[in-house]
Nucleic acid binder design. Structure first.
Length: 568
RNA sequence: GGCCCUAUAGUGUAGCCUGGAUAUCACAGUGGCUUGCGGAGCCACGAACCCGUGUUCGAAUCGCGGUGGGGCCGCCA
């Protein structure tokens, strides 16, 4: 509760000054560990140590000296502060979201356009989009960008397959695998990925002719051959469209798409390579390939970072550096969302950017989602497609809605089930800390109980229902008796800004997701204890709180892509 | 083999940087709550710091050594 800490610090300032100790106590003043006892706590051990006195005495003395819009108590060396109820409620009802309005570019997803999204790849998109949304909620100006990998081996394989394999051949090559879900017939990412998989199967048989053909395509594309790049685009574009359709269902969209080939075609890659070759840490291999010795800049392990092949062409990482230099020309602040397999690469790119005098982007790394039987692979085909998961989630949600709401039409049920399904899928991925891996389990992904999106959605819906019944705006100036559950709700609402800030500044959407569960819980208890509409009429104070909570729940849910419904 | 990430109740999660109170919150579990603004709810109760060791008055937090899980170590992307 930052606004509480501020006034406490002011008040403590003079009291502590009497002791003549250093300022280190300020960093110790923070959110209380014992939530039941206090909002903010100052452990007095540091001060006591400096004075060589008993911390319990210090705490008691300080408790006598400070005063403000809070209750203070000293227990066992701790100075505990609890916000004054009236003051806190006033703060909360008057809260408005601030607008730092920083320019920021977030690049996320950027998946190779060679097949449908599976749950593993989707973690990037869901985390990235949550970051985009949370930054916007925080008041920043965000541009969401997708880096289209329109060259290189993956696309080459796809383009080769589409050029050289008939549908019959593909079906035959993949005859030992599960067929395509008929539901996705005609959806280009699902259709086309089979060509990709068939080609990969053929390649695993060590067919030199195919390898040569693909290599030629790769090199032509890397040299900026227009015809080949066009052939690639024809191959991947429909796949990308199919992928974007899935993302759009998840509420994920982009402001700009930038093609990797752009930096080859416009010459910036070759300019970059010349620039790199003049650096003092540049090295040249026997066949003319060039690298930077990043060991001299502190990189451990493999220290040679190759950016130019023996034949003079660029590598993926080289183009990534050119891309980053361009990105820095577009924005003041940069965040990338990357899988943990890109850690080394990101380190190399970062060190190189630094060497060139550029800044290093912030990166949100995430661990992979695996299946109980092992990791997912588009190439091998052992994946859970996001399209399938969304369908299952919707189906499951519809069953629940149909049971609970016999008064609704199928059309309404369909609408609600879609929102619930999408929200639940997103929430279940968002609530987990990005740097922890997890195993995908159907029963968990489809669980709408517990700490899931529908729980939050339901609280919001209740608040909407009340607002509809009242039928007018709340008067946020209204005040009234503050009983326990009102106070607890106000405490929860009071940390909205703190939780948002932590999530945004530390790139941790899961913190905010977990917070929304708390806020919803607090609202539910308030809802039970504090009737807004009674036989005596409308309780204006409770209604004001309910409306502010509804507002916070609503914008909070949108901040992580959970859809706020008025009815469910 | 080397480097990096990770480990907190059945599950997810906070706290770790900057050592200090009975370790946060939520779900699941068990027991309770139907004349109630929507019961997808509410209340109560059990339940955790990976192991060892060192430093310290005091360690989830710091050091050292292990173990489990994940990732990387291509002139691939």
């Amino acid at each position: 509760m930052k606004f509480l800490i501020e006034i406490i610090e002011q008040s403590l300032e003079s009291a502590v000054a009497d002791y003549g100790v250093s300022d280190t106590w300020k960093s110790a003043l923070g959110p209380s560990r014992e939530k039941g006892q206090a909002d903010v706590t100052l452990p007095c051990f540091v001060i006591a140590k400096e004075l060589k006195r008993n911390p319990m005495e210090i705490a008691s003395e300080l408790a006598e000296k400070v005063n403000g819009e809070f209750h203070v108590s000293a227990t066992g060396g701790y100075l505990n502060f609890k916000a004054n109820a009236e003051w806190l409620v006033d703060k909360v009802l008057k809260w408005e979201k601030p607008s730092p309005n920083n320019q920021i570019l977030i690049e996320h997803t950027s998946a190779n356009p060679n097949g449908p999204f599976h749950v593993g790849r989707a973690r990037n998109a869901i985390l990235g989009d949550s970051l985009v949304r949370l930054h916007r909620l925080y008041g920043n100006k965000v541009r969401a960008e997708y880096y289209v990998d329109d060259m290189g081996k993956q696309v080459a394989v796809l383009a080769w397959a589409l050029e050289n394999l008939s549908k019959e051949m593909v079906n035959q090559i993949l005859s030992d695998r599960d067929g395509m879900n008929p539901k996705w017939e005609g959806k280009p990412d699902h259709e086309t990925v089979r060509w990709y998989q068939a080609a990969q199967a053929l390649r695993s048989e060590n067919n030199q002719e195919i390898e040569d053909a693909i290599s030629k395509l790769v090199h032509d594309s890397e040299n900026g051959n227009d015809d080949v790049l066009q052939q690639f685009e024809n191959a991947y574009k429909p796949v990308l469209d199919g992928m974007l359709e899935t993302l759009s269902r998840l509420g994920i969209g982009f402001d700009t798409f930038t093609k990797e080939s752009k930096f080859v075609v416009d010459g910036s890659v070759s300019t970059l390579m010349d620039e790199l070759s003049s650096l003092e840490i540049n090295g040249i291999a026997e066949n003319g390939a060039q690298y930077l010795d990043l060991g001299q800049r502190g990189l451990k392990g493999k220290t040679e970072f190759f950016y130019r092949r023996g034949d003079g062409s660029s590598l993926y990482a080289t183009r990534d550096i050119a891309y980053h230099i361009w990105k820095w020309s577009q924005t003041d602040h940069l965040i990338n969302v990357l899988g943990e397999d890109h850690k080394l690469q990101a380190k190399q790119v970062g060190l190189t950017l630094k060497e060139l005098g550029h800044e290093v982007p912030e990166v949100l790394f995430y661990a992979f989602i695996k299946l109980p039987e092992g990791k997912m692979s588009t190439r091998k085909g052992n994946v859970v497609f996001m399209d399938d998961l969304l369908e299952e989630a919707k189906f499951h949600a519809a069953e629940v809605v149909r049971e609970l709401r016999t008064d609704l039409s199928e059309e309404q049920i369909n609408h609600i089930a879609e929102a619930v399904g999408v929200s639940a899928v997103r929430f279940n991925i968002t609530k987990v800390s990005p740097d922890k891996g997890f195993t995908f389990r159907w029963e968990e992904a489809l669980s709408f109980e517990g700490g899931s999106a529908p729980f939050v959605m339901y609280s919001h819906t209740r608040a909407c229902s009340i607002a509809n019944k009242v039928g007018k705006d709340a008067n946020l100036e209204s005040r009234g008796e503050i009983i326990d559950s009102v106070y607890e709700l106000a405490r929860s609402m009071g940390v909205f800004q703190d939780k948002l800030e932590i999530s945004v500044l530390d790139n941790k959407p899961h913190i905010f997701a977990n917070y929304l569960l708390e806020l919803a819980t607090a609202y539910n208890a308030f809802y039970r204890d504090c009737h807004i509409l009674t036989s005596d009429g409308l309780n204006e104070f409770y209604y004001a709180l309910s409306e502010k909570a509804r507002y916070m729940l609503g914008i909070g849910m949108e901040g992580i892509g959970v859809i706020p419904l008025e009815e469910m």
